[in-house]
Write a protein that binds this DNA or RNA. Sequence first.
DNA 1: TCAAAAGTGTTATCGCTACACCCATGG
DNA 2: CCATGGGTGTAGCGATAACACTTTTGA
Lengths: 225, 225
Amino acid sequence: MAIKFDVALSTSVIAFAFNGANLVSLVGEKSEEPYKGAPMLPSKWVRANESVEDVAKNMMKRLLKIDHIYLEQLNAFARVYRNPMGRVVNIAYYALLNWDEVKAVKIPGYRWVSLADKPEMIFDHNEIHDMAYERLKRRVKGRPIGFVLLAKQFTFNNIHTLYEECLGKELDKRNFRKKFMRSELLMDTTESVIEAPGNKKPSRLYEFNQHKYDKLTLKGYDFKF
Amino acid sequence: MAIKFDVALSTSVIAFAFNGANLVSLVGEKSEEPYKGAPMLPSKWVRANESVEDVAKNMMKRLLKIDHIYLEQLNAFARVYRNPMGRVVNIAYYALLNWDEVKAVKIPGYRWVSLADKPEMIFDHNEIHDMAYERLKRRVKGRPIGFVLLAKQFTFNNIHTLYEECLGKELDKRNFRKKFMRSELLMDTTESVIEAPGNKKPSRLYEFNQHKYDKLTLKGYDFKF
DNA sequence: TCAAAAGTGTTATCGCTACACCCATGG
DNA sequence: CCATGGGTGTAGCGATAACACTTTTGA
């Protein structure tokens, strides 16, 4: 049977970041008709001679002015009629970003939205986004991804809130700290900060232990909260 | 930017079954040049108006003469040069099959191989297969998939061996039984069989509890062996 | 009656959960 | 000196892991 090169290829990226209080994701808008101006995930066409992952990576790097990004394939979305213009296979990635690196960047037509404020998007992009969030929730349990999402130094509150956000439920402060400390992923620094303007007592700052982190990432461990 | 419909689409399926002693998977061979006769995963081209999942499903149904199959998307394989004939995006699925339903079917050019005997395959099919096996290992822990792989009735030995095979390690007989029983997924039947020709004492047969199974599948539980 | 596989309990340890108060600091 | 969030410990319980002998049956 002869090959028929009659399908178009696109890629979308669901980029998550954590702004200290909420998980946020990047939403763009369509620049052309049809649906011009409608919310959509950051997406790009992929040509026959381009690597899908590279296209996705470069799109994000250009948008966010960063030179490194954590990307993972989410799924291929390939329903026949997902795009009214023709058969488009979308290979979607999900990305985790460090908020400090991206919060200052202003990109016309793009904005960070919390999960609660996520707008209706075109095509099957809502579905893609939902799947990415589900994946994130699972990943949080299986890998110490917190460190990708947090700044180099962070308070215990930061990481505690992050986990609560990702899992969508409250976690006991003491138990959480104990478990995390047992993992030896955190290193105490001697520094501390006043997190919020009104706060009185400063919080200690932590860094993460890259060595331990690499070992755990490799093995794929099990944090069960 | 105008859409370019210049990519070809294919699908491959990694079909696992459990023959009572080993996990096996289905390997075919290429029917045309180049690489005619070379081992490959069961695969099909997908036309612009076809659903990828349907093509995958129907391929397996026709091959194995079954009318239902458990299928799950594994990943999209899309490297530019994965196929020397041109840009082919492969959306791969992994399937779990009941050995009793498929063992008798003889398909020219296809054979079941144990993981140890898996041959070198064309393109990136080795990589696809490896990823499928990794997925299976994770799924075994997270869901009671054993029931998809086993016949309607099975001995405790069957399910014990299956889990050992999937996880690639030995599991204590008594602890395994206790844990599995606690889950209430198994129902004792009054029947028993002589498993192997030489065996003396017959083994009790179990069925699984569909009701409990559905609830657990839904929740996505946690079997930690 | 023997060989072979089936089937069964106990104990020590570890991790999880639930829960409430003191501490340090800036205002 | 007080208000605010930061930081800490313990006890009970349930799950896990390690471990070896008895039972049933066919030959």
